[in-house]
Simulated assay, not measured.
Amino acid sequence: MSRLLAEVEADPQQFIPRASQPVWTDPETGFHRRGVSPPASGYMTEMVEGTLPPGAVIAYQAPPVAGLEHHLWMLSGRLDLTLDGTRHALSAGDTLRYRLTGGSRFHCPGPDAAHYVIAITRP
């Protein structure tokens, strides 16, 4: 939805100060999402900073758009990311590149929060 709304912007911001970056927290899981470089007209990539609390799980049945290219960079903590049934155990400094074609599951095994950045590019 955020991408659709961004597409109507005639002249998207080039400089996005932290105070202008959209933030959302899921009340059920505590997942915190910051749109570091939110979707905008004329740009194919967005960047999202995510923080998933210890023990939290977020699962998606399918991607919003098949074939989205993701580059996930772990800043701190640990994250178990399952893509199409394959589990990837990520720690601080690790990067996982993938095309999102099916279900995904994010799990933070703890003991600290999983803090990461995802660059997402439309196909």
Rank of each mutant, 00 (worst) to 15 (best):
2 S>D: 13
37 S>I: 14
105 R>S: 02
39 P>S: 00
34 R>L: 05
119 A>M: 14
49 E>V: 04
37 S>E: 09
68 L>P: 00
6 A>H: 11
75 L>F: 07
101 T>Q: 13
78 R>Q: 15
117 V>M: 03
35 G>H: 10
48 V>I: 12
17 P>E: 03
19 A>E: 15
114 A>G: 09
80 D>K: 13
10 A>C: 04
10 A>S: 10
62 A>P: 04
79 L>Q: 07
106 F>W: 15
26 D>P: 11
112 D>N: 13
107 H>F: 10
108 C>W: 05
61 Q>W: 07
97 R>G: 08
99 R>Q: 09
51 T>V: 15
82 T>F: 02
92 A>P: 05
15 F>Y: 14
18 R>V: 11
81 L>V: 06
26 D>G: 06
12 P>M: 09
27 P>I: 10
100 L>D: 14
111 P>C: 05
60 Y>I: 08
79 L>P: 02
46 E>K: 06
73 W>P: 00
74 M>K: 07
61 Q>P: 09
68 L>E: 06
64 P>E: 05
114 A>Q: 04
79 L>K: 05
28 E>L: 14
63 P>M: 05
123 P>G: 09
111 P>A: 04
34 R>P: 00
59 A>S: 14
41 S>N: 14
54 P>Q: 05
82 T>G: 08
70 H>S: 12
118 I>Q: 12
34 R>D: 00
118 I>E: 13
40 A>K: 11
55 G>Q: 05
88 H>M: 04
